[in-house]
Design a protein around this nucleic acid. Sequence first.
RNA 1: CGGGGCGUAGCGCAGUUUGGUAGCGCGCACGGUUCGGGUCCGUGAGGUCGGCAGUUCGAAUCUGCCCGCCCCGACCA
Length: 520
Amino acid sequence: MSKAQPPKSAISPTRAEDYAEWYQQVVRAADLAETSPVRGCMVIKPWGYAIWENIQRVLDGMFKATGHKNAYFPLFIPKSFLEKEAEHVEGFAKECAVVTHHRLVAGKNGGLVPDPEAELEEPLIVRPTSETIIGAAFAQWVQSYRDLPLLINQWANVVRWELRTRLFLRTAEFLWQEGHTVHATAEDAREETLRMLGVYSTFAEQYLAMPVIRGPKTASERFPGAVDTYSIEALMQDRKALQAGTSHFLGQNFSKASGIRFLDAAGQQQLAWTTSWGVSTRLVGGLIMTHSDDDGLVLPPRLAPAHAVLWPVFRGDDTRAPILEAIEKLAQAMRAERFGDRAVEVETDLRDISGGDKQWEWIKKGIPLRIEIGPRDLASGSAMVMRRDRGPKEKESIPFAELPKRIPELLESMQRGLFEKALAFRDEQTHAIDDRQSFDRFFTPKSADKPEIHGGLALSHWCGRAECETAIKDALKVTVRCIPLHGIDGAKAAERLKEPGACIVCREPSQERVVFAKSY
RNA sequence: CGGGGCGUAGCGCAGUUUGGUAGCGCGCACGGUUCGGGUCCGUGAGGUCGGCAGUUCGAAUCUGCCCGCCCCGACCA
């Protein structure tokens, strides 16, 4: 075979060539997850799961800091529970896994079949979300206004029988947290809904380095059974929006369905007000699509499973021992430093494989810092430091004595740089569009057969009517992502929201712009 | 679930039209070589060709049914 030329990029195809395929290759090359023998379900591998663990750790701290406690509820939901809230049923019925038997027996042609004798009296649903089963518990727990607010979170897996799945972005089973709270008044519940939206938004921007727009969804995009649904929306590099977290004000719908009542200070029985909110392993997909490049995964340092990897470069046996010693010493010194809310985490890679392989493997895994020590470094008392947010061959020589102390600063600058880059990208792809013709052009690819990356966020006027929303969706597959609450960060787009105009479809008057985009 | 594509070694593929019982590259193991870099040479391990049934002396190859994956739609976090 002809001599293998190093490819121009470590991931093939590139983002521009085939974004969907690029995404899958990044996931694979970084060893984050793989498909499993179970339809629509993924195996999350250690490097990917460690990202999720970091997400969990940080969010869990934020939930506790806002007064929430963790609990755990059953995986199974009796069918009758799900039937209690009309809109909820309609929303989830079509994607539920159902358990009907509790025993298997040998079948006629070998193998196992459900025992007809062991059919359940009432089928159990594998939870697609837990409002109803948690509501039943809450009805018992809440008796008095003194029991409120009740602030509970659960870390769990849920199952939604999706027709088309993609690793992390949409899987049949996914991991998430779901917060469920009960309040004495509508105001308290609304405040909680927005508080948690704020927590998600802070987390997305400070940890995932993923700028988000927050605001309420339109009626058609609401969670089944919610009075109001709020979301954080992020823009991916293919210029499609990703709903990265949701927070719902459920009004009294689920209290009514589950009988969550309490006696107020005046001794009157009242229906409670509830909320729910959640983020899932989808955040990992969002992280990947926000920062990664044609060489693979790029990890924001705050959530990276490890911050740096050290490896030796040998040249002859006489330098071996002192280099290994220097590696170990430097790793220890680095581990004594802190970055954000945890110790600096360092891997050492002493595998006897070629330096090039090692280099590219860690690039594809997205580790923030790669550090190597060879004979020349040893002689000069320094190490070569390479950053994942710079070119693969850019190196900086830093003396051993200074390096550990500089790690937090380096990581911080990378974290900030990733956010700023993502923000600048979003700003570039965000446009105020006022006429339908420009709107259509914006969302129509030049090549129909093999659509190139196109579109972005359109800030346009909308009259608020569902039929105009549907018209856009049917024509262009573009939807209202949300109605921004606090404007949008980024210079150009910021001040264009709260101004009067005419609906992009029907030209009826509108008081503010909303965010339109194609989405995941 | 509709349209399209595809299932052959861990990964990427050839072989299927013209049936004769499996090959290439990468990866993996070992030896050497090289090494501030995705080395090069050699040796080797690894496959019930998605599954079941049929046609046939003989099936990766032909026929039927089923399963799964990917892309585009509908649905959705």
